[in-house]
């Protein structure tokens, strides 16, 4: 056994060349400024909507009905003389709530189920996967109608239904990431240190699936806003006179030829929010892909 001659054998004293990761926000600003703009506008409106609204969201004034956009009412008024801009600001808050409920229910349940299924494998995986597949087999709208019929029509109930329908999406992603990670050496190393499987799942596996979960959350969040609009349109979600994108669209359809502004403004706003969230999801998935390497 001979000592190898080497310059690197001594203690490396130089400060390491740190590969600093680029910040998320600055990455998004460069990669997809439109997404950042649309989503931050949406969140701003959702948080501060009631403070920003120039008029009441629910007070009717028939003398001011069906106005086109003008100086007093920037986006016009609806058939009952309510200010469209104010109602849109209120709807943004409703949409944000819808998103939050769906992502919370779908994310927590779905990620938990997927983590356990993928991380433990075997019979657990089999049972959990079949259950989520069955859940996936029901159309979202059917689950929503059943839950709303059993309970009562309200935003929360409608969104609980949509959240349940989102569980399989999260579960599928969490499971596949957990399976990929299961045989990675750092998981084996944790096993070699005698950590319990549950602890490995929570401290080793879970932190490594946050990225993919956030991506799914942004897509399912967009879906949630669409479902909220659809269910409120059908009268199963937010109840009048409270504003929401869906109920505004339903009101608008009766006046399409008298006051097309109504449908146009609401449609454009909803489309812009969905577009923003989807672009954000794409940008996030690129960001995590990049930072994984």
């Amino acid at each position: 056994m001979t000592e190898l001659s080497s310059t690197t054998a001594s203690t490396p004293s130089a400060v390491p060349a740190r590969r600093r990761r680029q910040g998320l926000v600055s990455y998004l600003a460069r990669r997809s400024p439109l997404a950042l703009l649309l989503v931050s506008l949406f969140l701003f409106a959702a948080l501060f909507g009631p403070l920003l609204a120039p008029h009441s969201m629910t007070d009717t004034d028939l003398s001011q009905a069906n106005l086109a956009p003008n100086a007093g009412y920037w986006l016009g008024t609806d058939a009952l003389g309510r200010d469209v801009l104010s109602r849109l600001l209120g709807s943004a808050g409703v949409a944000a709530q819808a998103m939050l409920i769906v992502v919370a229910i779908g994310g927590v349940l779905g990620a938990g189920l997927g983590l356990v299924a993928g991380g433990l494998g075997g019979i657990t995986d089999l049972v959990v996967s079949r259950v989520t597949e069955i859940l996936q087999g029901f159309p979202t709208i059917l689950i929503a109608i059943v839950i709303v019929a059993l309970l009562s029509p309200s935003l929360t109930n409608a969104m609980i239904a949509v959240g349940l329908a989102a569980v399989p999406d999260f579960a599928r992603i969490a499971r596949s990431v957990a399976i990929q990670l299961r045989d990675r050496e750092f998981i084996q190393a944790a096993r070699g240190l005698g950590l319990s499987e549950i602890r490995i799942l929570l401290t080793e596996t879970l932190p490594n699936m946050i990225g993919p979960l956030i991506i799914i959350a942004s897509f399912d969040g967009a879906q949630a806003i669409m479902w909220e609009a659809a269910l409120s349109f059908l009268g199963l979600g937010v109840q009048p006179p409270a504003p929401s994108f869906g109920s505004m669209l339903r009101d608008a359809q009766n006046y399409l030829n008298i006051n097309p502004w109504l449908a146009i403004t609401v449609g454009v706003v909803v489309s812009a929010i969905i577009l923003g969230l989807n672009l954000l999801g794409d940008a996030l998935s690129d960001f995590y892909e990049m930072s994984e390497r």
Binding site: R184, E185, F186, Q188, A189, A190, G192, E204, P207, N208, E292
Partner: peptide, 12 residues
């Protein structure tokens, strides 16, 4: 155990 691949054996 000391693992082969130090890029895979440490939790990122």
């Amino acid at each position: 155990l000391i693992f082969q691949d130090p890029y895979a054996s440490l939790n990122p």
